[in-house]
Structures are given as C-alpha cells and as structure tokens.
C-alpha cells in the first residue's frame, strides 16, 4: 500500500508542477490587472516549441530557452493588443487560444506522435532522496519540479515582501494612483504579461519534455484551463495555488489509477474527473453564497486609459 501511495503522491506532484508554472504566471498577470484567457493555447505553443527544438537539436537547454523566448514574444503581442491598443481582454484571450492552438498544430505537424531521444530525466537529490517515503515523493523528481521548489517561495516573497510586489498588487487594484505617482503603468503591465506567458510556455514544456516525450496536437487537454481556474481558486496567492494544484493533481492521478482497480467504469468517466472537480472547486471558492470580502483585483480585466481617469 505504501509504495502505491508514494507513487501516487509523486505523480500528483509532477502533475501539479505542470500546471503551477502557468497558474503562478497568471496570478502575476491578473494581479497586474490583465486576464489572459489564452493560457491553454499558449501552453500548447510552449509544448510544441520545446519539443520541436529538442527533436532537432537534442539539447534540453536550447529547448527551454526557445520555449521561454516564444512565451515572451506571445506575451509581447498580447500586451500590445490589450495594453497599447486597449482591446477587450476576454476577446483577446479567446483569439490567442484559437490562434495558438492552431499555430502549434500547424507548426508541429511534422513531428506529431514521434518520441524524442532526450527528455528531462529524474535526478535524485543526494541524501534527501534516500529519506523513506518523503525522499521518494519530493526528491526523486526532475528539473521542473526542483525549479518549482524555488519559484514558489520566491513568488510569495516577491508579492508580499518587496516594493515591486507592492506595486504589482497596487497595479491590479488602482492603476491610476500608480500613474499619478509617476510609475509607468504600461511598462509594468507589459512586463508582467510577458512573464506570465513565459511561465505558461514553461508549463507547456513540462508536458512535452518531462511529463511525456512527444508532441501531439491539443496535448494539454484542458490543463491550461485548470491552471486558469486555479487562479481564482487560490485567491491570487501562490501558496493556495500550490495546494489547489496538488488537489487537482491528486484527483487526476487517482482517476487514472482507479481505472486499473475499478475497470467496470469506462475510462471516459475518469477522464471527466479533473474538469468536474474544477467546476466544483470554482463554485466552492467563488460562489456568491460566500459572504467574504472578495480578493479579486479591482481593476482586473479593465483597460487603463489615461484620458478616462
């Protein structure tokens, strides 16, 4: 029983990490007042870019870099539309969803379904990995998981303890007051959108370079959307996002494993679990029957126009 539980926990962590990059990125973006509905598509672009690079160069570092560059470029484009041209963020997000899903399928067609020679391998951390149970769950993982161990505390520290994080929180609440203080609101939003998109593409790379080692059209299968709903679920706090991601990871992995133990139920119903769980989590955390002070950034989804001040 214990090996079963540890393997489930370890797999849940891998699953959680693959959506956490995107979720934490989106937390930063939404804290800056920009909602990016296109996560799912951008994640696909990341997965495709990473895989195509690895396929041609067999170099994981190049793959990671190219993934990040694609994320930054997509972020730049999204920022240009939503910040400079002040387009509607929801519509823009949907456009990116469709554009990126299509483009990733189009550019990745030639390598669809082929396994790459290299992928991110499990690295056992010396000493720590030999702790029974805990070592197996937390320290026999790959690069993306260890990087996430750094990203989580850093992002929490950044948001709550630094001047820049304070400005970020203010940006999503009241951009006009920052502008009055002479801070370049537009540049800040550009920065955070680009950061968020880069994080989202890293999530994609997790899926095509670590979770699996192939590329398939639409392979993220709604993980981007789960990451997106995780943001509201976490109330814009990376710490809660971690908990939520582990929860979703656990449910999905359990679902996959239950198939083996309870074969009577068709696999499609297990496949529905994470989506149903997302809806339920969304109802529980954001339903208006909760009489709590909403923590949603007040300026979320609103374009900022100096003349309207």
């Amino acid at each position: 029983m214990i090996p079963f539980i540890t393997s489930i926990c370890a797999a849940a962590i891998v699953y959680a990490v693959s959506i956490l990059y995107a979720a934490i990125g989106e937390i930063f973006s939404q804290r800056a007042g920009i909602m990016n509905l296109g996560i799912e598509g951008i994640m696909l672009m990341g997965a495709m870019t990473g895989f195509v690079t690895v396929y041609h160069t067999e170099n994981l570092l190049f793959a990671l870099l190219s993934t990040i560059i694609v994320g930054l470029v997509l972020g730049l484009a999204f920022a240009f539309l939503t910040v400079t041209l002040q387009a509607d963020q929801t519509v823009c997000g949907m456009a990116f969803l469709i554009f990126c899903s299509g483009l990733s399928g189009f550019l990745g067609k030639s390598v669809t379904g082929i396994a790459s020679a290299v992928k991110f391998q499990q690295i056992d951390i010396p000493v720590l990995s030999s702790i029974p149970v805990i070592g197996e769950i937390f320290f026999q993982q790959d690069f993306f998981v260890y990087l996430m161990y750094l990203v989580i505390p850093l992002s929490i520290f950044y948001i709550y303890k630094t001047k820049a994080g304070l400005m970020l929180r203010a940006l999503g609440e009241n951009p006009a007051s920052l502008d009055q203080a002479g801070i370049n609101v537009f540049a800040m939003r550009y920065g955070y959108i680009m950061f968020a998109c880069a994080m989202t593409t890293i999530s994609g790379a997790c899926i095509s370079l670590s979770y699996t080692n192939f590329w398939n059209e639409g392979m993220t299968g709604g993980k981007g959307w789960i990451a997106f709903s995780l943001v509201a679920f976490s109330r814009w706090n990376p710490a809660y996002a971690v908990l939520g991601a582990l929860l979703f990871g656990g449910i999905s992995i359990l679902g996959m494993n239950m198939q083996v133990y309870l074969p009577g139920i068709p696999s499609q119903f297990y496949g529905m679990l994470p989506y149903a769980a997302t809806i339920i989590a969304l109802i529980i955390t954001t339903g208006s029957f909760r009489k709590k002070h909403s923590e949603e950034p007040a300026a979320l989804c609103q374009k900022y126009d100096r003349e309207d001040r």
Binding site: A77, A87, I98, F99, G102, L103, G105, K109
Partner: peptide, 25 residues
C-alpha cells in the same frame, strides 16, 4: 500543408481584426 492551417488562420484573422478595432475607436 497541415490541415491545422485552418485554425491558425482563424486565430490570425481574429487577432488582426481585434488590432484593427483600435482604429475604429
């Protein structure tokens, strides 16, 4: 040419028209 060109074109057209909206406003 991969058939995904269709979705890609759809997305591109939509983004392009979103950008164009700016010049209406």
């Amino acid at each position: 040419v991969p058939s995904q060109i269709v979705t890609m074109l759809q997305g591109t057209l939509m983004i392009s028209v979103i950008a164009g909206e700016f010049f209406n406003r």
